[in-house]
Design a protein around this nucleic acid. Structure first.
Length: 547
DNA sequence: AATAGCCGCAACCGCAGAGTT
DNA sequence: CAACTCTGCGGTTGCGGCTAT
């Protein structure tokens, strides 16, 4: 009401020919060229001018409006006013339940892509959606409610997405927050090709909407609003993602949300099944390869010479466990482990996890390597060092972590180089394992992680010869050496795998790979680069409560 | 009835990409 | 090819209304 009254008064002033200069103290803003442009709420007279102009000239060329009509508004302001309030077919009022559900779904898919989301909600503007979501976040956080309804999560991650991501063409199909654009044109191109040719590839994951996972997994952070915010851009603001869900588990109804359940999507299964290929981890429960990795990587000798050892993870009943928030204060553990511990501590039934998530979080494996590559180069070493320290590593292992302090400092600075679902952390740490591996045939010892004993075991005879062949065909090194590499890279497939790897990962990581693979001419022995320990998938994670 | 705090909306700001010169 | 402009996007802020005390 008050706003309306004020508006009317201003309308009168406008109609009376008042100039902006007379209102300098009340919303007029100086601008270039000596022209004073008004700021603040729009009057109905201004709206009329704008509407008439757009009707006559169409949208666009917003900066010309001021010149042609004398409207004392900048082009940006005009565009915004038109888009959010004046254009036809705008739907006003509160969101309907269906719209709210759709927004949740879309946000789970694409994150804070308000404009994109608006395209799925006719009559709604990005600003409206953004405001709604921010309000929702506050409201739900206060109420201790999960931000995403479980059914929405389930739907999204079952592949029944709204289609927001899948319908998106071009450069935006991956959440930009996860990709450091500058260095990924090549990768994007590669995966574009892969995507376009899924039918002939043994395994070509749909480029995931990593943001969705990222969003969800933000909730794993112990802190409230922070989280694993991508910091891969020089423009930090762009990646602040302040309105990410940060599903603080101290508030959130855990029963309503099991990110890892969902993160363990079945993309891989679908992809492989469509080619008649079995998921490499299907034979075993393998509860999430990422899980296995995350713990196995703590063991520098977790690998063995036995190929294709499947993983089995026995989760303890940790329903009574509490997140050790204090541990962050003195010695922040690797976010990955924190996240996973959080996950473990969720009351999700183990049986459910094992049965429903038999396939690995594979959609993130290769992609995660790429993703990881997109994080600051220093992160590799950072994680490397961190991995050596994050568990009860031996003194000798700790000595290898000479850069630990540096790591921790930078870790704080990065506030998490963000893997969407901790995968980059996982992979990086596994990378460290690969490099440090020395006793290949030993059973890995148990380690203590956040108060839990994590023990790895290897399960023999899980992979049949057939499955071995199958997995071989899925391995990145195999893919790189196969026909599609030639077809889509334009390179001779006889090029070395290392070269192919270089094409994919470039400089540092490729160098790492070369180093690791030195001395072997058989790439199948060594695809552990990028932490893809395909041959030595740690099999069993026994986690028992220290207490 | 007064008022402090909260809430939601509208608008602004800064940045980046695309297009143009 | 660099500089400039336009446009769009996402984050933030300010203001007015609402509500609890």
């Amino acid at each position: 009401m008050m706003r309306r009254i004020k508006k009317e008064i201003e309308d009168e002033m406008f109609h009376d020919g008042e100039t902006g200069s007379q209102l300098d103290d009340e919303g007029y803003d100086g601008s270039a060229c000596g022209v004073v442009l008004k700021k603040g709420p729009w009057t109905s007279a201004e709206d009329d001018i704008l509407v008439n102009y757009v009707k006559k000239n169409g949208e666009g060329n917003w900066n010309a409006i001021h010149k042609h009509t004398g409207l004392l508004r900048c082009g940006k302001s005009c565009r915004l006013r038109w888009a959010n309030h004046l254009r036809p077919n705008l739907k006003k009022g509160t969101f309907t339940a269906e719209e709210e559900r759709l927004i949740c779904e879309l946000h789970a898919e694409m994150g804070n892509k308000w404009a994109r989301m608006a395209s799925f909600l006719p009559g709604r503007t990005d600003n409206e959606i953004k405001n709604y979501w921010n309000t929702r976040i506050k409201r739900h956080h206060r109420a201790g409610l999960a931000l995403y309804p479980p059914e929405v999560l389930q739907k999204i991650l079952n592949g029944q997405s709204t289609g927001g991501i899948n319908r998106i063409n071009g450069r935006n199909k991956v959440h930009p927050g996860f990709l450091q654009k500058k260095c990924f044109d090549k990768h994007d191109a590669i995966f574009d090709s892969l995507k376009d040719n899924q039918g002939i590839l043994p395994y070509v994951p749909e480029l995931p909407d990593i943001s969705a996972y990222g969003n969800m997994l933000n909730g794993f952070d112990s802190s409230q609003y922070c989280s694993f915010v991508p910091s891969t851009s020089s423009n930090h603001k762009r990646f602040r993602e302040s309105t990410m869900p940060f599903l603080d588990f101290s508030y959130t109804d855990r029963n309503a949300f099991y990110p890892f359940n969902h993160v363990q999507d079945d993309t891989f299964d679908k992809s492989t099944q469509s080619f008649g290929v079995q998921s490499p981890l299907d034979p075993g429960p393998s509860l999430h390869s990422s899980m296995c990795y995350s713990h196995s990587i703590m063991n520098d000798n977790s690998s063995t010479s036995k190929p294709f050892e499947a993983a089995k993870l026995e989760l303890p009943s940790l329903q009574n466990s509490e997140i050790d928030l204090g541990s962050w204060v003195t010695s922040p553990p690797p976010p990955l482990l924190e996240s996973i511990d959080d996950f473990i501590q969720s009351p999700a039934p183990v049986s459910t996890l094992e049965s429903d998530c038999s396939s690995p979080q594979n959609s993130g494996l290769l992609q995660s390597v790429l993703y990881q590559r997109k994080t600051p180069s220093s992160s590799v070493n950072q994680y490397y060092d961190k991995s050596s320290n994050s568990s009860t590593a031996t003194p000798g292992e700790r000595e290898d972590s000479s850069a630990l302090n540096m790591y921790e400092t930078e870790w704080e600075d990065y506030a998490d180089p963000v893997s969407p679902f901790g995968a980059s952390s996982i992979l990086n740490e596994c990378h460290a394992v690969s490099a440090n591996r020395n006793s290949l045939d030993e059973q890995p010892p148990g380690h203590t992680i956040n108060g839990n004993i994590v023990k790895l075991e290897y399960v023999d005879q899980v992979w049949t010869p057939d499955s071995e062949n199958q997995i071989t065909s899925l391995r990145p090194d195999f893919l790189l050496a196969s026909d599609w590499y030639e077809a889509y890279s334009g390179h001779d497939k006889n090029q070395s795998i290392t070269d192919a790897t270089s094409m994919f990962f470039e400089d540092q990581l490729a160098t790492d790979y070369k180093h690791m693979t030195a001395g072997t001419s058989n790439p199948s022995q060594v695809w552990e680069f990028g932490s893809l320990a395909w041959n030595n998938m740690p099999a069993v994670c026994h986690i028992s409560d220290l207490g």
